[in-house]
Structures are given as structure tokens and as C-alpha cells.
């Protein structure tokens, strides 16, 4: 709030009302609903529900399939975050360094941001198409038969590749703007002190980029967890079967295909807690970041 402000009661309430109503109806109500249903067992024929306490949670943690999905999600998130962050960092450093063409490279490397994940997934299906996709043919050249949607690990690899491709642009944009905001005087001073490019990068540039990297780490984890739904749905062609899937995809499969309201809600609550932990972690890191910039 500003020191100089208007003293009125009616107007600000009316200004806040639409936002608060929408949030109340479409955010707090569903969230509370999820929390409540996670403690109940819904009758499959719609005849009411019974309170089962923590049974839904216990059932999940005991389920080998849920644990398998959780482990896959963990690995998937780690790989996508690692590859998209490191490739984007290399590209951003080079784009910042070249004397000519920075803007052109920026355009060429960022436009994929606007490609929707499910459309990216569809392109992935075409590129890794069984038998005649370009990547499938390329791998066959090395004697490897890539079978998307049939082989668990092949499908997982395609998911990681498409998600990484789709998420390089965001990382690139943030890294590049982080690099461009490093003062010229700092770069020049570093140039005089240290002639080796690699040394300069690790001693000066990387520490100055660390806050951006921290922030991007959280963004990437959130992306891999939640925004990849459409891409995965496209790559498995809507038929999860034995294919790998992420936790969010399982919430959807159990809730809408399996009609398991309680189990799906319990999964939602677990995800909510996961996001809350991530956000608290992010705020702590962000708080700290102020001290060294």
C-alpha cells in the first residue's frame, strides 16, 4: 500500500469483489472439495460416500503403480530440467557473446515458447513415428529399433526429448536477459583480470547468473510436473497402457477414466503439498538472492 492513498470504502471493495468471487468459486471451493473428498470413499454407483480417514493416502503409498509413476516423474523432471537448463545456458552465453546477430539468434531460439505442449507432442509423434519418423530412421541407422508407445524406455526418452525442446526457449530468454543485465564495467574488469574465457565464466558470469538459475530451477520443475500433460497425452495417444506417465497424468486417468474420486483427490492433495513445499523453498531462495545482487 502506498502512503498517499484514497480514503474510500465502497470503491475498493467493488474493485476487489470480481477477483475474490472468481477465486473463491474456482479456487478455494475446489481446493477445499479436494481436501474433503480425499478422506472419503465415493460409492461407484453414486450412492453417497463414506468417511475412510487416511485410507486413500495409505492406499496410494502402498500401490506399486503409484510409486512407479512417482519415480518416473522424479526422473523425468530431473532430466528435463537438467537438459533444458544446460542447453539453454550454453546457447544464451554464446548469443550474448557474439558481436553480430544476437537479435536474430534470440528470435530463432525463443519462438518455440509459443508452441503448445500437445502440439509439440504431436510433432514428437511424427518425428519418432514407428518405422518412418526421421529420428526413428536416424536411430535405425545405428542399429537401434526405436518403438514409440511400445517400449517403455523409448517412450520415456521421446517424452524427455520433446519436453526439453519445448522448454529450452523460456530458459534461454531468462538466461540471456540475465547475462545482458551484467554491467559492461564488470565484464571489462573481468576481461583485464582474466584472459581465459572459461575462467571468466565460472568466476564472474556464473555467480552473477546464479539467482536466475535458482529461479529457473523452480520454473522448470513446475513445468515438468504440470505443463507436460498435453505433451504426454499426445505421445501416448491418449492410451496410457504400459507407457510411462507423470503424477498429474495419473490424477486425470484415475479421476476421469477410473472414476476414483477419493484416490484422485488424495493425489491432488499430495501434489498441492509438493507445490507448496517448492514455493516456500523458492521464496526462501529468492529472499536470499536479494543479498548478493
Amino acid at each position: 500500500m502506498k502512503r498517499a492513498s484514497f480514503n474510500q470504502l465502497g470503491l475498493p471493495v467493488w474493485l476487489l469483489l470480481p477477483q475474490l468471487v472468481i477465486i473463491g468459486v474456482f479456487f478455494y471451493w475446489p481446493a477445499a472439495f479436494a481436501l474433503r473428498s480425499s478422506f472419503y470413499l465415493e460409492d461407484p454407483f453414486g450412492f453417497g460416500s463414506t468417511f475412510v480417514g487416511l485410507d486413500n493416502y495409505n492406499g496410494l503409498l502402498a500401490s506399486a503403480q503409484y510409486v512407479k509413476v512417482a519415480v518416473f516423474t522424479l526422473g523425468f523432471t530431473f532430466l528435463v530440467t537438467f537438459f533444458s537448463l544446460s542447453i539453454a545456458l550454453v546457447l544464451a552465453v554464446k548469443a550474448d557473446k557474439v558481436i553480430r546477430g544476437t537479435r536474430t539468434y534470440r528470435t530463432l531460439l525463443m519462438w518455440v515458447y509459443a508452441v503448445a505442449p500437445p502440439v509439440a507432442g504431436f510433432l514428437g509423434v511424427m518425428v519418432f513415428y514407428q518405422g518412418n519418423g526421421p529420428m526413428t530412421e536416424f536411430l535405425a541407422w545405428f542399429g537401434y529399433e526405436f518403438r514409440l508407445g511400445v517400449n517403455y524406455y523409448d517412450t520415456a526418452a521421446a517424452m524427455v526429448a520433446v519436453a526439453t525442446w519445448n522448454h529450452i526457449p523460456v530458459n534461454f530468454i531468462f538466461f540471456l536477459s540475465g547475462l545482458q543485465s551484467i554491467p559492461q564495467s564488470v565484464k571489462e574488469a573481468a576481461m583485464i583480470d582474466n584472459r581465459s574465457g572459461t575462467g571468466r565464466f565460472w568466476d564472474i558470469t556464473f555467480p552473477l547468473l546464479a539467482p536466475t538459475a535458482f529461479f529457473l530451477l523452480i520454473i522448470n520443475i513446475t513445468y515438468a510436473l504440470f505443463d507436460t500433460f498435453g505433451m504426454i497425452d499426445a505421445l501416448v495417444k491418449g492410451e496410457p497402457g504400459n507407457n510411462p506417465m507423470t503424477l498429474v497424468y495419473k490424477v486425470y486417468v484415475d479421476g476421469f477414466r477410473g472414476n476414483d474420486l477419493g484416490g484422485s483427490s488424495a493425489q491432488s492433495v499430495i501434489l498441492m503439498v509438493l507445490v507448496l513445499v517448492l514455493t516456500v523453498f523458492q521464496f526462501r531462495v529468492m529472499d536470499r538472492r536479494i543479498h548478493y545482487t
Binding site: V248, Y252, S268, V275
Partner: peptide
């Protein structure tokens, strides 16, 4: 803090 994806089912019900 909470993207729509984590509360899709209850939001759908509402």
C-alpha cells in the same frame, strides 16, 4: 501456489 492442474477434478465437479 497451486496451478489448475493439481485441482482439476474438484474444479470440474464445481
Amino acid at each position: 501456489l497451486l496451478p489448475l492442474e493439481v485441482r482439476i477434478l474438484p474444479t470440474y465437479e464445481v
